[in-house]
Design a protein around this nucleic acid. Structure first.
Lengths: 203, 203
DNA sequence: CCTTTTCCGTACCGTTCGGTACTTAAGTCG
DNA sequence: CGACTTAAGTACCGAACGGTACGGAAAAGG
């Protein structure tokens, strides 16, 4: 299988998982190469050989995060009704933001919001990745409107944006140390604004 | 008892205003002393003489920001009804987050969410400053419950937290370049969750 | 065995970071 | 006018930053 040369002495995926945690806790700028490689348990040069550079490592880390730590989002989209999609997403999100075994908050929010040392490339990359989720939700809600699962006249894009705003606002609170129960109390209120098919209409 | 020695050659408040913009756009970590002093139009040593160090300058900048750029929050608290307080706050907030003559978003959010190079002192400081606003709102809403302006049984702290979550979520969206109209559309939906006294109210 | 290929560790690169002596300029006071 | 006091400017500090050159170590192929 043409594996010539000395084989790699570490598990790249495991190392990436450690990098995710460091970026998550400290943000892109705040995570130094020393912080990262120490947590990954590998040498500086090994990291460069395996991942390219800090920015590429971050991209890989975000991809891994989206795949592993945001799996609940895809599960939520598979719920049968729009309301169930939204409730499932916000509930699982509140839990994910406050897992005791992981950093508080959301990597794609606290990874970097401001433009920082780079010219905003990191912030823009994260914004795009958040927007992808918003679009997926909007698409699901569009279907819900077509199916009569949301009242006619409901703007699915606006509703998706609202759900993401609640999710990201909760992420800010979680990063500040808010308790899981507090996030769920917010979700309780936020769900009141979600229009339902047969009950009262919204805006 | 007048000024001895050479008088200061710049307006400290004006320089602070420039510093606010740099921190706002680039965050605490992303704003270097060079970025700051160039924007402020003063020398490095002048900045240290006038403000102490970078962290103290940031504290002063956040205080100035709270006083100048968040004046709308105090005005909102003075509205006669709880609903008017919340709507006024969220509307003015959406406008403030997207002022064309200022950086997008909110200094107290994008100033620093992650723990970064310091051990989270900046993030904690900003979280505390946001929490102060949340408490002020909770206090106002507590009064509203007592006055019957919100339904009995309404949890004013939870509602205040919800409002702040919407505000901070909108700040995240604004930092990512969301349009003002989009933020207001989110506010439209968010307001649906605000409980009203049993008779009809609102605009 | 020896060569080839790749990985790992050290030691270092140039740059930028926040912060500071030290000198010079610009005022007031006696 | 000095004498004193304070600001402004230059030039620099040690440390940390992201990134790399290089030599030795470990595996596969012949």
């Amino acid at each position: 299988m043409a594996v010539r040369g000395r084989p790699r002495g570490f598990d790249a995926e495991a190392a990436l998982d450690r990098a995710v945690e460091v970026f998550w806790r400290q943000g892109y700028e705040g995570a130094s190469l020393t912080d990262l490689t120490e947590a990954m348990g590998i040498n500086r040069t090994s990291m460069y050989a395996a991942f390219g550079n800090k920015e590429e490592l971050f991209h890989r880390a975000v991809a891994r995060y989206a795949e592993a730590d945001m799996a609940y989002a895809r599960e939520a989209l598979a719920q049968p009704t729009a309301y169930a999609v939204i409730e499932s997403f916000l509930r699982a999100n509140a839990d994910a933001l406050t897992r005791p075994d992981r950093p508080s908050g959301c990597l794609s929010v606290q990874g970097g919001l401001a433009e920082g040392g780079d010219s905003g490339r990191i912030a823009r990359f994260l914004a795009d990745s958040r927007l992808a989720g918003e679009h997926a939700l909007a698409q699901r809600l569009t279907r819900a409107v077509e199916e009569g699962d949301l009242p006619a006249g409901t703007d699915p894009h606006a509703l998706a944006r609202y759900v993401m705003v609640v999710s990201e606002g909760n992420a800010v609170h979680a990063a500040a140390g808010a308790a899981r129960t507090a996030l769920h109390a917010t979700v309780d209120i936020a769900l009141q604004a979600v229009p339902r098919p047969h009950a009262r209409t919204g805006a």
